[in-house]
Design a protein around this nucleic acid. Sequence first.
DNA 1: GTAAAATGTAATAATATTTGTTACAGTTAA
DNA 2: TTAACTGTAACAAATATTATTACATTTTAC
Lengths: 144, 144
Amino acid sequence: MDVYLCPDMNNTRFATVLHILAMLADSEGVWLSSDWIAGSININPVMVRKELGLLQDRGWVVSRKGKVGGYMLQTPAKGISLADIYGLVKNTEVLGRKNRHTNPQCPIGKDINRQLEGLFSHTEGLVSGYLREITLDAFVKQFH
Amino acid sequence: MDVYLCPDMNNTRFATVLHILAMLADSEGVWLSSDWIAGSININPVMVRKELGLLQDRGWVVSRKGKVGGYMLQTPAKGISLADIYGLVKNTEVLGRKNRHTNPQCPIGKDINRQLEGLFSHTEGLVSGYLREITLDAFVKQFH
DNA sequence: GTAAAATGTAATAATATTTGTTACAGTTAA
DNA sequence: TTAACTGTAACAAATATTATTACATTTTAC
């Protein structure tokens, strides 16, 4: 039997989490509810709360429960880079996935995944290196 | 009603197509069958023929039908870059997808997709620029 | 104290996407 | 004329993503 090992970046999580953080950074010192944020992204509030859970685990966000609850940024927006955000949501490689089970009897099949790994890690480095230079703060300032 | 606009890179197509082309380049002048290639990747031969169909459309590959049929590279392996291959199979952005339907009433929701587009096109440029410098020929030579 | 409006989270359902498979028509060489 | 291919449509299965429901818990305001 075979475990599934490689979920992918075929999703909107980077866009969603960046959206959430951008709103929080843009409303410093104000508690925003998951419903309010969800209304801006136009997705289900439960999805927003799930992502906010991870952001709290990372220590970037705090929540307050109860009637006037909500979420607020805890880390300065200058201290969060887009590479940090990418790292949080990334679960696949830029160039997609490898084929598992390539044939070890074949000269190509035997080594292809090692060669691919070289490409994957280099492209990963390029993307992360670029995103590392952009802070959440700088990103949000573009909106004004 | 809503058309679906944005399929994704949550797949093994780059790995698969590169594997196919690597085998063809590694067996210059020999007709390889889809079954043979599929046996190296360990996927269904029909999937291989589907990709080979696209490679023929691009003019990189020719096929021969009938009993001793198969596929052969038509373009010199030095004339194909990994960026070409990436361009052929790429159908999503490196950083994933945007949320459609963001709220135009919200300062963030209104502009987020334009800002994301900037990130997407820059990362795309980084990745393609790197892959453009690697030819299929150079890639295959690494295997020996 | 009780109602209203939040968070937190599990469980499940609905969609979307990718991959695999079956089937068969057409082609070519021996 | 059979065997072994390509080409492709149609369908099925597996996997991934997103949405939804439900409800326990928390907190404020009245």
